[in-house]
Amino acid sequence: MQLINEQKTGVKCIMMWDKVRNTMGKLEIQIQNILKYFAPLFLERKGQLKIQAQNICEYFAPSFLGKKAQLKIQEMAFMLLAVFLFFILVGMFVLSIVYSNIYESSNTIREERTLSSLVALADSPELSCASSKSNCIDGDKLIVLLNNSVYPRFWSFTSLKVLRLSGFNKAENELTSCTFANYPNCDIFQVYDKKVANERALSSFVALCMKESQGEYVYDRCEVARIIAGTQINFEGEN
């Protein structure tokens, strides 16, 4: 029974396949008929298009290819320019760091020089005491230096002053500046001040001696004082 059923199904399949083949054959005939009517027209137009395309290529191909090359060069040039600018920017960044270090080191050197000069200043011939005392300033020379226009160009300090013991506990506005007239009854010797911006002051303690007399007897009266020298600090972008 099972065998008979299988044979019946096989016969059905063969019959269906024949139907499909007949329909496909009809479709092929229909397409061939359509092509018979329209093919010449279609082929003519296809030929015209080919000729037109050829003509277009003849006229536009060289400039189109040139434009493509130009674009490529432009791309490369922009890329190179970008790389170039990038490295320049990096270089400028590095330089700015390096130059900020230069400012720092110049300030350090200047401060070191001020400090080393300041320590030696009390023993310089301009300020040293007449009687051979070390680290001692002669007040009688100092008062003469107050109106001197030559020494500000000789010393590297931007300002120089000597604060007497009497001025140690006074506020700046309470200090009496020394002049030839009020000397020695004063608090501070303002030797000179170049009035620069960004000044850093360094100081050192010294002995300050001045001539005094009691009747015929002339002697040196000494006291502690503070010598204060200024040095200019430079910052990047200034000057």
């Binding site: 011939p125 003469v144 030559v150 001539k211 007399s213």
Partner: peptide, 22 residues
């Protein structure tokens, strides 16, 4: 030049110490 500048200081100092009976 330094001697000349120092001499000016000493000339000034002479004026100062003359005030102290010198």
């Amino acid at each position: 030049h330094r001697f000349d500048a120092l001499a000016q200081i000493y000339l000034g100092k002479i004026e100062v110490i003359q005030r102290s009976s010198c």
